[in-house]
Computed example of a mutant assay.
Amino acid sequence: MNIGARMLKTGIAVTLTLLLCHAFNFTTTGFAAIAAFLAIQPSVYRSWKHLLDQIQANVIGALFAFGTLYLLGNHPVVTGIIVILLIGINSRLGVENVGLSVVTAIAILEIQDPNVFQFGMERFLSVMVGIVSAVLVNMIFLPPKYEDRLLSHIETTGEQLSMLLRSLVFGELEKEAYREAKESAEKNIDKAEKLFGFYRDEFNRLFKNAPYSRAKKLVLFKQMIMILKKELEVIDHFEHQSSALLYVSDGLKDDIQEFLYALTNYEEKIFMKYERKIKRSYSDDLHDKIEEQKIRLLSHLTKSTPDKITDLEDVKKHSYLFALVSSLSHLSDELEKLDILVERYHKYE
């Protein structure tokens, strides 16, 4: 069993909550523990946002519960109606997680003791202890390092896609291996976008006065993910228009293959340049070679197109080829943008 950081933090938050409840002599520790469990969030910023949302939701839940106890009592039917109303009101207010609001209301409505207000306040406060404990643990203990995780994930996904791209023209990969690699890459791109969302939340909300170079990283990572998507688009183009390659000359196939190798090599060198593993001028030389290969490929494709096309199948075949080469050209443009962004990042760092 793999115990992740979030699982570990959840356990620590519950432990801290129970210890604090015992220190304050709260008797309803179970509700506090549930609150701590529900309040752990994937990022520090979202923990703060969750805290503010839950303070609002808990106050509403407590007020509804106290009002209902005094006016209508705590009959099961009444409790059910209050739960429905709380869900509706919190949803209207934009509170994403209404669970703790409902927990607070039920905790108060189930009180049978004559001193309702005292026990109700204790349960309300115990829930708040759970929420605050979870936020503190999330901030102090093993805070998520989204930047490192995001960069590592982008590089790993880029390697997967590079392998797929290099195998497109001559189909070196077995169908099952190709399918598994592509599905894995698609899932990894989705995960990269999610990690980028967490990183952007942390950066925008908690580091508003960060240096200019740090702000540049947001743009860099966004462009890196854009390239992953463009590579996947190229792969999709080759899949949907693979029949066009059946009629392509060996020379043109070789040009396409060389261009694919050049693009994947260029991407690898840009990442190495970002991490300061190679000289900055090295990727510039690669860029010039890619431009030469692009011109040669387009020229070869144009020359291979007959002056007169009368057959509809020939029209489709050559339009597919131009679409394939166009997708590769767009990918090279996006790589060039990333290269420029990396250059500017190092300049202002």
Rank of each mutant, 00 (worst) to 15 (best):
L331R: 03
K253P: 04
E147K: 10
M7G: 08
L86G: 06
L71I: 07
D284L: 05
L161K: 07
T156N: 14
F207P: 09
D201Q: 15
P114V: 03
Y320C: 12
K216E: 09
T27K: 12
L151A: 15
L168S: 03
A177W: 06
L335Q: 12
T68F: 01
S167N: 02
I111D: 01
D255V: 05
T310R: 11
M224V: 02
Q257H: 08
L338N: 00
L232R: 13
S327C: 04
H300K: 03
L252R: 10
L38N: 05
D255E: 11
A262H: 13
Q56F: 11
I189W: 03
R6C: 06
A210K: 08
A134D: 02
I84F: 11
L38T: 09
L19F: 08
S329R: 15
K229W: 11
H287Q: 13
F26W: 12
N188C: 07
R6D: 01
D333R: 15
I140V: 06
G61K: 05
K273H: 12
V219L: 03
G4M: 01
N97D: 14
G251D: 02
L286P: 09
L93S: 07
H330L: 13
W48G: 12
L38F: 05
L252C: 01
L298M: 08
I295P: 02
P76H: 01
S126F: 01
I60V: 05
D254R: 15
R179T: 12
F203Q: 03
V95D: 00
K217A: 02
K337C: 07
R280E: 12
H346T: 00
M163H: 15
H346M: 04
V14D: 05
H318V: 03
F124I: 04
I82R: 05
L297Q: 00
R214E: 08
N265E: 15
R166T: 06
S184K: 14
H237N: 10
G11I: 13
V169P: 02
I270P: 01
N204A: 14
L220E: 02
S243C: 06
E275V: 14
F24G: 04
F322H: 11
L38P: 04
Q112S: 05
V137E: 02
L69C: 00
D190T: 15
Y266I: 05
N204H: 14
H346Y: 10
K316C: 08
L312W: 14
E268W: 13
G94D: 03
T17K: 05
T15G: 15
E183M: 13
S283A: 14
N2I: 13
Q112A: 09
E292S: 14
G99M: 15
M139E: 09
S133D: 09
H300N: 05
I87L: 07
G30L: 04
F117M: 11
F124H: 04
A244D: 00
R6P: 05
L328R: 01
S167R: 04
R46D: 10
Y212N: 11
P306G: 06
F238G: 03
G120Q: 00
I309T: 09
V102P: 04
G30F: 06
I3C: 10
A23D: 09
F259Q: 12
K229V: 06
V116R: 13
F141A: 11
L328N: 10
S162G: 11
